[in-house]
Write a protein that binds this DNA or RNA. Sequence first.
DNA 1: GCGACAG
DNA 2: ATCTTGTCGC
Length: 238
Amino acid sequence: MEEDDLKYDELNLAEAKAIQNELRERTRIEPLQNEITTIAGADISLNRFSEVIFAGIVMLRYSDMQPIAYSMVESRTSFPYVPGFLAFREVPALVQALEQMSVKPDVIMVDGHGIAHPRRMGIAAHFGALTGMATMGCAKNILFGKWQEPGIQKGEFSPIMTKEEIIGYAFRSKLKTNPVFVSPGNKLSLQNSLDIMQRCSGSYRLPEPTRRAHDFVNLFRTGKLESGYHELNPTLLF
DNA sequence: GCGACAG
DNA sequence: ATCTTGTCGC
């Protein structure tokens, strides 16, 4: 009855790679269709050495970056962290978190890469292919591709390149701090990912959706937030 | 063959 | 990712 959940734990890397190649056919890197009203940050949190994973999606109002809802899920993973295969460890829980949201965000910003990946299938692309949502990735470290240090001013950026194409950008989200790495995942373009990153940059290195998701999911992991879908500040809703 | 390597 | 105090720099 309740056996529709993703199960990646038993896969070996060859099988995982085959799945990435299949899912890549479902991704679309193209200009966003609709206007953005809400954006969400997606992140996970774990206790050291534990297979229990806490996943969270926090939805914010795009106009002022105020959190308006969040979805928290507690699950398990045995798939290890392997660079290039992060999605197989974290995506199942994120899918659960998304499924229980009665209102879906227009765009989801995932903590990790989009197409800036050896097979163009970073966790944001994988999540987008699976759910059909518009997604983009924002990572704190590079995984794949060549890049040059962008200018020191906030908002400056430089491309992440493969031998022949741009797959994302190193973006200076804060003065005198290391850049973050952004790339589209699904249903939005390279330019869209750059514009959205710009709009989501506040006073911290991490963009608001990702930063909020990280904060919320840690509160959840430490027992200060309940699981499930919750809306907040109903009075401030647009 | 060697080094790099999201969270 | 997570465990943690102080500390260096702006």
